[in-house]
Amino acid sequence: MRRTAVRLVPSELLSALRDLGDRTAYTRRVPHPPTSLGLLSSPVASGGVAESATEVQGFSSDADLLAALRRGEEAAYAHLVRLHGGRMLAVAKRLLKVESEAEDAVQDAFLSAFRSLDSFEGEAKLGTWLHRIVVNASLMRLRNRKRRPETPIDDLLPRFLEDGHYLDPPQPWHDDAEQLLQDAERRRWVRDRIDTLPDTYRTVLMLRDIENLSTQDAADLLGITPNAVKIRLHRARLALREILDREFRGGER
């Protein structure tokens, strides 16, 4: 269970100093961190503490962690879950909206990740790989939900005259995005508005604009064509723009 990675105090240095019996030299050359100074007064204890600090610090790189996972080390699995679980849970919550379902999706995702560790290629980052897996796990749960009939969003799309001009010409909003979102209540309001979009559109908007997946990745995960992703994304943005427009249009700008 010992890592050679990230040590607060390199063990080689500690033992070398112990052999020399030169504590002053150590304190002079390495004036901090203070805890390591304390450790030196008791060489036996210091070894133990330095090791547990290493345990806490964990793994220095994805490659290090991955190797331990592939060896089946329990601590590596726990570390992976703690390191990435929070962010993955946030993603699942954004997509599923129901806390318990989001937790289930994260569990699905990790079990699926554990199964496919062999196929993980070192080129991608572990975090990126897990992100995709949890998006997929969330989408599977969304798909398995009882389909509620979706309200069409046609009423929220811009309308045009025969000659291609706007029926209702757009106007600037009264503030820029940053100012419009200054308070938490506003942000919650916007989130709630996004949630009113039918799942078909909301999902694409979340994958592309919030989770930053590429059109191709979103298409693969949703099992639709890239062109369908583009069309749905555009309609989702148009509908959301229309909803926000009713709140933010015009004013003192």
């Binding site: 942000r187 916007v190 996004i194």
Partner: peptide
């Protein structure tokens, strides 16, 4: 402009620290 702001607002609203992010 408002289309761009819509994207930006959605992004900020969903990823802001005060959001449902543990």
């Amino acid at each position: 402009e408002t289309y761009r702001e819509t994207i930006e607002l959605g992004r900020c609203a969903c990823t802001n620290p005060d959001g449902p992010v543990p």
